[in-house]
Design a protein around this nucleic acid. Structure first.
Length: 478
RNA sequence: CGGGGCGUAGCGCAGCUUGGUUAGCGCGCCUGCUUUGGGAGCAGGAGGUCGGCGGUUCGAAUCCGCCCGCCCCGACCA
């Protein structure tokens, strides 16, 4: 029966995650500690995510650029909070060409420093603004504890870095990009997310305000899925990016930066996956429909395979990514399990009986039930079926998120809820870091986000009882 | 950096306490036959510097020392 079954999510979620990532062919560990080899099935997902984001970046006027992996160490230290925030995680190159370098180079943990140093040369006038640039690249942050996709020393991401002539314009950009992240997560990845601001202690080092979208995993832990930062004039001041405004007055440029990383793949796995493995949203699934031919003899293979291949071609003509699994070394049952593990949204089975009867058997990854369709309708049915699966995944995740989002009215409720149930717990907060730290120490949960439009923020702080200034959503996080 | 554990075939492990033939098992891999609608069976086969260096010994996967690497828990983090 179920040989090589995965660990059950309900019994051992961390093991389930590791096993799914490995067995589904997503990724494995690299040779150096904390590094990751992204395998074809994982990289194809990343490519789909890249495309969804990049199309939207372009549509909102951004262009792609590339800045160097290495830059002089002293650049980092120009922005005080920035260097303090990243110093423990930066890798430094001290030798090259067999000799000690006179000036050490850092491997980028993020590119504000090198980019703003360069922007200084690009900006003289308000006519040079805005600069709306993005780059796709890798970054390196020394990590103590790593998990595939969720936290590795090296990871892939995009980082947008924009410069503006005014504060409102930069703020508008910050929120525009947050909205794009929300849209990609919800509409493309079928992942419901909560947009919000970060508390000061969770802010990006050097930012005035950090915005986030937070998703809830199926083990009721939160995942920061993307961030967008309003950097004010901090980086312009540190890297000397000044321009003459319309009034002929020198002014520092206003900045934003925003990023989403391969971490989102870990989120995708943990939001949708079930005990059989991955469940991929059709919009990003590298294979949307897998066709498994079934036959015993060479004669039957001769009858079945051409039908399978013709159907695959027809689907391709309709813009559907399909694949015939004609591997001879595995029997159908093995293939069913494997493609379920890999999260393919739809499986079509075609055997001798089906060819005879002019039909196919269709199975959805979300419902798992088998349906028999006339062969001629298979292609026309697929588009709506994939759309339904996309919607079902979103609806499932949304109802799970909502069922695990609670109001906390006092500290006992907050603490007990975070410890016993998990999920998001929302309550008024006075804004004092001391209250924030107390919750973290008691429950290991952190403020994940401050809702953009809080209801009744003036209620008593759930920790200390003083008047609140914000609402905070707490959760244990990855 | 503190605490715990591990390194033996591609993967997962046994063997080590009490040194002694050609170092084993499961999965996977290769070949053949039978199979194929929910993770196939049988037969044959390939695959190892036992993490590294040094020591003890007639003899070391096994005992001793040093080193390297990895994993888990904690302090930092997208």
């Amino acid at each position: 029966m179920a040989r090589n079954a995965l660990p059950k999510q309900s019994e051992d979620f961390p093991s389930w995650y590791v096993e799914v990532v490995k067995r589904a062919g997503m990724a494995e560990h690299g040779l150096a500690k904390g590094t990751m080899v992204i395998k074809p099935h994982g990289y194809a997902l990343w490519e789909a995510i890249q495309k969804a984001l990049d199309d939207r970046f372009k549509a909102t006027g951004h262009e792609n650029v590339y800045f160097p992996l290495l830059f002089p160490e002293k650049l980092l230290s120009k922005e005080a909070e920035h260097v303090e925030g990243f110093a423990p995680q930066v890798a430094v190159v001290t030798h090259g060409g067999g000799e000690k370098l006179e000036e050490p180079l850092v491997i980028r943990p993020t590119s504000e420093a090198v980019i703003w140093s360069t922007y200084a040369n690009w900006v003289q006038s308000y006519r040079d603004l805005p600069l709306l640039y993005n780059q796709w690249c890798n970054v390196l942050r020394w990590e103590l504890r790593t998990r595939l996709f969720l936290r590795t020393s090296e990871f892939l991401w995009q980082e947008g870095h924009t410069a503006h002539a005014s504060s409102p314009e930069a703020m508008e950009e910050t929120l525009r990009m947050l909205e794009i992240y929300r849209e990609v997560c919800e509409d493309v990845l079928a992942m419901p997310v909560n947009p919000g601001r970060k508390s000061p202690s969770e802010r990006f080092p050097g930012a005035i305000e950090t915005y986030t979208i937070e998703a809830l995993m199926r083990d009721r832990r939160a995942l920061q899925s993307a961030t967008s930062h309003f950097l004010g004039q901090n980086f312009a001041r540190a890297y000397d990016v000044e321009f003459l405004n319309r009034d002929g007055v020198l002014e520092y440029a206003w900045a934003t930066s925003w990023g989403m990383s391969t971490r989102i793949i870990g989120g995708l796995i943990m939001v949708h996956g079930d005990d059989s493995g991955l469940r991929l949203p059709p919009k990003v699934a590298p294979v949307q429909v897998v066709i498994v031919p079934i036959y015993r003899s060479d004669d039957e293979a001769g009858a079945v395979l051409p039908v399978a291949r013709t159907l695959s071609d027809t689907l391709a003509g309709d813009g559907i990514r399909s694949r015939v699994d004609d591997r001879d070394q595995h029997r159908p049952g093995f293939k069913f399990s494997e493609w379920e593990l890999k999260g393919v949204p739809v499986r079509i089975e075609i055997g001798p009986r089906d060819v005879e009867a002019g039909q196919v058997v269709v199975v959805s990854r979300t419902s798992g039930t088998k349906r028999t369709l006339p062969a001629g309708e298979a292609s026309s049915t697929m588009t709506s079926m994939l759309r339904n699966i996309q919607q079902e995944l979103y609806d499932d995740a949304l109802s799970f998120r909502d069922a695990n989002t609670h109001d906390a009215h006092d500290y006992d409720e907050l603490r007990a809820g975070l410890q016993a149930e998990g999920g998001f717990w929302v309550g008024a907060w006075c804004g004092d870091t001391a209250c924030e730290q107390r919750v973290s120490q008691d429950t290991k949960a952190t403020v994940r986000f401050l809702p953009l439009e809080p209801e009744d923020p003036g209620a008593a702080c759930v920790v200390c009882g003083r008047p609140g200034v914000d609402k905070a959503a707490w959760a244990r996080a990855y």
